[in-house]
Write a protein that binds this DNA or RNA. Structure first.
Length: 689
RNA sequence: GGCAAGGUAGCUCAGCUGGUUAGAGCACAUCACUCAUAAUGAUGGGGUCGGUGGUUCAACUCCACUCCUUGCUACCA
């Protein structure tokens, strides 16, 4: 396992020089809680490194280039620069509110980034790693631009589903090239794209195969290596790094109308942001961190979707350009909410700004921390669990310790006792520091939280056993009561240090209460004796499930507004897109026996994603049909309904049984599907003519 | 379709290189306590570890097959 150097690294605490990054948020949209998982994960690590005394810099930037940003700006009638400037402000606001303490948050649309992008490109070119090749791509004749896959829509070449993107089909999950789409349309203008030649520039990744295989041995976890070996096994292909004008990005030097693909300059944004930080910070040298022989540590935190960019293209480019490679790339899974993908219609697509309207950001920081591990597994935000976890761990266990001790200490003027009541218990708390460190270092925050909470349990049990409230009632034992409560506060103080990377703002309030300078890791070993405390004010309120519900409701509302318009657009688009089939004769039509059918029963099919099993009455007997309408209709809403079916279609054996016909429905698919039904009075079995 | 990760108590998760009655937190129940933001403490009920078949003296842990979930599948970002 490549993680094994951890203990060595811990041994050198205080001497390490570390540069860490989170993936750059795309400047074309707001930050949502899925993004936040990564920034919180990275921020905790960064704060931890600083807390234990390492030299650590956490940089990030907005990812500002590419076709989507260009088009989005056009749509809003503003320049791309104006769009990304707006995003920059919004993003920083969200990050600030969630306590993400970047040392620098820059932009890929910056002098520094242009410089390093050109430098890396030039070095790739000089070393013979750039190839030129003419490729054939779809081109929008109206907009006069080449179309990325995502901006071409049409019918799936495999299953014929309408309204599919140019790279893969949502319905049958086939993958293909946009050229294969039937009836392709430009999603930008609606025009029919034409094929056009264009010369593109490629990085010859094959040149780096040996280097990458070597790097993967130390740079990623076993889990990630498995995934990456897929690409290595099928053989690395040339990576297309150019795009034709019009494109919002940097022009390739000496190549008019050719621009760098956004994914080339995005990771370079890490360098640019750090360079920008160096220019503002006396004594901080860019080369110390990025030179080939740098002894500093460099870590990238990313989501699992962009592993290939960070673990193949990026190390290759760095090596080719004579820079150092990352020490490690840490990938995390995706955020699901209540077990499924974030969904706008369910209200679980929650923007950071929406969350902030209803809830304390440190709740989420803690919940993330409580469940995060170093693994690449997806992370489920279960909203009920979230409420319980935060209330129980943070308020009922941890904060409660201070809360139950504070008043009794206050009685004696707020001055803590001169002695430790239970030295061995204190020792036990102190001795866990190494273990907590290891967990943080390994990004096993879940294990750290568990350990910290088990200590909190011990503190509560200790207080219960000593029952200081009883001791306080008797003059003779009042001193002992103070001693116990002071002990409780000291235990609480240690827990606060352990939790500080996760809950920076809460712990700031703790520091105020303790009347102490900012807590550091070394404070663990020196308890407070005869120390004057400040008045205790409640440190954290419980989460109310109602707040969570309100947040979800408001997310649903926001999404409904958007989907109303897109739904309309989609409907219009799909009627436009689907062209009329070639003319047929009446005899052809007459072969099709359409009958009115009454839905007798409708049931979910176990194991089927899209199918409902329908029993239909067509006058003379029953027919069983498996219909792909689960996404749009609930079975209970269908029973008793009249609809139209193709009654003489050859039965087809499906995985779940025999389907003896088809019911008729229209629409692009998913939720947008409408079953045909006759007006009142019609009877099952009547032929449709 | 190919590949990856996951499928362990009601919920969220631990279970390393196979070994006594499968663990924790929350939730639930009972009792205790009343200092604390109705918090805390003690005790207890509850799972045979997605399924099938193997390997083994012994499997949640290894192998094969299978089902389910999520994700990736490079000129999308």
């Amino acid at each position: 396992m490549p993680e094994q150097t951890t203990q060595d690294l811990l041994a050198s605490n205080g001497n390490r020089r570390i540069l860490i990054t989170s993936a750059l948020p795309y400047a074309n949209g707001p930050i949502h809680i899925g993004h936040m998982l990564e920034y919180v994960q990275t921020d905790i690590w960064s704060r931890f490194q600083k807390l234990v005394g390492n030299e650590c810099y956490y940089v990030c930037a907005d990812d500002t280039h590419g076709t989507p940003i260009m088009l989005s700006a056009q749509k809003q009638n503003i320049t791309s620069e104006e769009l990304i400037a707006k995003s920059h402000i919004d993003h920083q606001k969200d990050f600030g509110a969630f306590g993400i303490a970047f040392d620098n948050f820059h932009s890929t649309h910056s002098e520094e980034n242009k410089f390093y992008t050109e430098t890396i490109y030039n070095r790739l070119l000089e070393n013979g790693h750039i190839a030129r090749r003419t490729i054939n791509q779809l081109f929008d004749p109206e907009k006069q631009m080449f179309l990325p896959d995502r901006f071409v829509k049409g019918e799936c070449p495999k299953c014929g589903s309408a309204d599919q993107y140019g790279d893969n089909c949502d319905v049958c999950s086939a993958t293909y090239s946009p050229v294969e789409l039937k009836n392709p349309k430009s999603a930008v203008s609606g025009a029919t794209p034409v094929l056009k030649d264009s010369e593109h520039f490629f990085v010859k990744l094959q040149d780096f195969e040996a280097m990458l295989k070597q790097w993967l041995k130390t740079g990623v976890s076993q889990q990630m290596a498995n995934k990456l070996n897929e690409w290595l096994d099928v053989g690395l292909q040339e990576w297309d790094i150019s795009r034709d004008a019009p494109y919002f990005g940097y022009q390739i030097p000496n190549e008019p109308n050719k621009f760098f693909y956004v994914w080339l300059d995005a990771p370079i944004g890490y360098m640019a942001s750090f360079k920008n930080l160096c220019d503002k910070t006396a004594g901080l040298e860019f080369d110390d961190f990025w030179n080939k022989d740098s002894k500093a540590e460099l870590y990238h935190f990313i989501g699992k979707d962009i592993i290939n960019f960070h673990c193949l293209f990026w190390p290759a480019c760095l090596t080719a350009a004579n820079y150092r490679t990352p020490s490690k790339v840490f990938a995390h899974g995706f955020l699901t909410v209540n077990g499924t993908k974030m969904s706008k219609s369910k209200g679980t697509f929650i923007k950071a700004a929406t969350y902030l309207e209803y809830l304390n950001p440190e709740y989420l920081r803690y919940y993330f921390a409580a469940k995060l591990s170093s693994k690449i597994d997806d992370f489920d935000l279960n909203l009920e669990d979230f409420v319980q976890r935060v209330n129980s761990d943070l308020v009922n266990k941890y904060v409660n310790i201070a809360s139950r001790c504070a008043k009794l200490v206050q009685k004696s003027g707020g001055v803590m006792h001169a002695e430790i009541d239970h030295p061995s218990l204190l020792k036990e708390f102190q001795n866990e520091a190494k273990q907590v460190e290891t967990h943080y270092e390994n990004r096993d925050y879940g294990k750290a939280s568990k350990l910290i909470m088990s200590l909190a349990d011990k503190a509560n049990t200790y207080i219960d056993e000593k029952a200081p409230w009883k001791l306080a009632k008797d003059e003779a034992t009042a001193d002992e009561a103070l001693k116990v409560c002071s002990m409780g506060i000291n235990l609480f103080r240690i827990l606060s240090i352990y939790l500080k990377p996760v809950l920076p703002s809460l712990v700031t309030n703790v520091e105020n209460f303790l009347n102490a300078s900012p807590l550091t890791w070394s404070d663990i070993q020196s308890p407070l004796l005869s120390h004057q405390l400040n008045k205790f004010i409640p440190l954290m309120k419980r989460v109310d499930i109602k707040q969570v519900e309100a947040m979800v409701a408001s997310s649903v509302e926001a999404a409904a507004q958007i989907s109303k318009t897109t739904k309309k657009n989609n409907a219009e688009k799909s009627t436009k897109i689907e062209s009329i089939k070639p003319e047929i004769q009446f005899e052809d039509f007459d072969k099709i026996d359409l009958r009115l059918a009454k839905i007798i029963s409708a049931e979910h099919v176990e194991g089927a994603d899209k199918l409902l099993q329908l029993k239909l009455d067509i006058g003379e007997g029953e027919k069983q049909v498996f219909a792909g309408i689960k996404s749009a209709y609930a079975p209970e809403d269908l029973v008793g309904k009249l609809t139209v079916m193709v009654a003489n279609l050859a039965p087809r054996k499906m995985r779940f049984g025999l389907s003896e016909g088809m019911v008729l429905a229209a629409g692009p698919g998913k939720k947008d599907l409408w079953l045909l039904s006759p007006d009142d009075g019609a009877q099952p079995g009547m032929r449709v003519k």
